[in-house]
């Protein structure tokens, strides 16, 4: 199954299971079914709860917050994640605040979906990964789509949390297959606390005996695993990749129990000769910086070297393919960064 089909099935599932659920966005109605076809079939099956809207990102995100305030579940599609900047006030100053600023918890079942990232030549305002701007907002969760996490479970977890979530979906993933990990690697899923979709791992034989630990969100899985394969074949370097579904708050660290989150991560980090955080966002003030900082605080004395960060360049993302690939993190960027980190 393709990732896009899995996500589409997740949306069908939400609308089917919850008669108070809405999907809202621009050009999402059939027969068009959304700019990336993720909402295909929804409006035909659930007319009245799948709403094609004017081009009004702030308006429709606020509208979703109003529905959520009344107890409904609302999923907003932002056509290109870049445009979520237009809805920043509604997300940060209204939806996230409303959970807590009235003195007691106000549940807000609300997800803002953001097709994200470059690699398709759309240019500077249609290619960004804006996750970092939403990290550290009280009352707001940031998730990223991953080929290793069933979107049906992720969507349920986001809505069940009762807090607004921003869901970043790397556009390149849509056409990839779910759970597609190159030979000879395996993948599994470790729980990350009481609720939530958990942290996926990709590893060779023993996930806790890798030369290198890589932490990356879902959009990087394809590039990282291809780099891992090349490193294994070329240099016999073993890597273990950790992929959290929820980027913030941190599922990676927030539980000290042995069989979840940090309990599983820490021994692997301790044994690894290098730790890398990889993300597509451009350099500066990133999610990866926060992850690295957490690891440093958690186990600075046990690390052989500081956590290495791999980002796209601190640059706009050009349209021309040769220029774009020079800016964005690619398989070779990761490959080189691992070799560099392991160099003694």
């Amino acid at each position: 199954m393709r990732v896009a089909e899995n996500l589409n099935a997740a949306l069908h599932g939400v609308l089917e299971a919850d008669p108070t659920a809405y999907v809202i966005g621009e050009d999402i109605l059939d027969p068009y079914g959304g700019a990336f076809k993720i909402t295909k079939g929804l409006s035909s099956r659930f007319p009245g709860r799948v709403l094609g809207t004017p081009i009004s990102e702030a308006g429709i995100t606020g509208l979703a917050a109003g529905l959520a305030l009344c107890g409904d579940a609302a999923i907003v599609e932002i056509m290109f994640g870049d445009f979520v900047a237009l809805a920043f006030d509604q997300i940060v100053n209204f939806a996230a605040k409303s959970c807590t600023m009235y003195g007691s918890r106000v549940p807000m079942r609300m997800v803002v979906r953001c097709p994200t990232g470059g690699g398709r030549g759309y240019g500077p305002t249609h290619s960004q990964s804006l996750q970092k701007h939403f990290i550290g907002v009280p009352g707001l969760s940031v998730y990223e789509m991953s080929p290793l996490h069933d979107n049906r479970a992720v969507m349920s977890a986001m809505l069940a949390s009762g807090e607004p979530s921003v869901f970043f979906e790397d556009k390149v993933l849509y056409t990839r297959r779910m759970y597609d990990v190159p030979d000879p690697f395996h993948s599994d899923l470790i729980p990350a606390g009481d609720t939530g979709p958990g942290v996926a791992r990709v590893f060779l034989d023993d996930p806790e005996e890798a030369d290198c630990v890589i932490i990356a969100p879902g959009g990087m899985v394809d590039r990282v695993t291809r780099a891992m394969r090349a490193l294994l074949l070329d240099h016999e370097i073993t890597c273990c990749l950790y992929v959290p579904s929820r980027l913030y708050p941190f599922d990676l660290f927030d539980s000290g129990a042995q069989d979840v989150g940090a309990g599983r991560l820490v021994p692997a980090l301790r044994r690894a000769r290098a730790v890398l955080v990889v993300e597509e966002g451009t350099a500066g003030g990133t999610w990866g910086s926060e992850v690295a900082h957490r690891i440093h605080r958690l186990m600075w004395r046990d690390l052989r070297r500081p956590v290495a960060q791999v980002n796209s360049l601190g640059s706009v993302i050009p349209a021309a393919a040769h220029l774009e690939s020079a800016v964005l993190v690619g398989e070779s960027t990761i490959y080189d960064a691992v070799l560099e980190a392991l160099r003694d």
Binding site: A58, G59, I60, T61, G62, L63, A64, A65, G66, L67, A68, L69, C70, D72, A74, D89, Q90, N93, F94, K97, S98, M101, Y102, G103, V106
Partner: peptide, 27 residues
């Protein structure tokens, strides 16, 4: 920033109207 029953105030200009529109849809 006051919320009680079906009454809510917010401190950002223009923020409430889209939310009120969503509430109106629900109602």
């Amino acid at each position: 920033h006051v919320y009680r029953d079906r009454y809510m105030s917010t401190g950002v200009q223009g923020e409430s109207l889209p939310v009120a529109t969503g509430v109106a849809l629900h109602l």
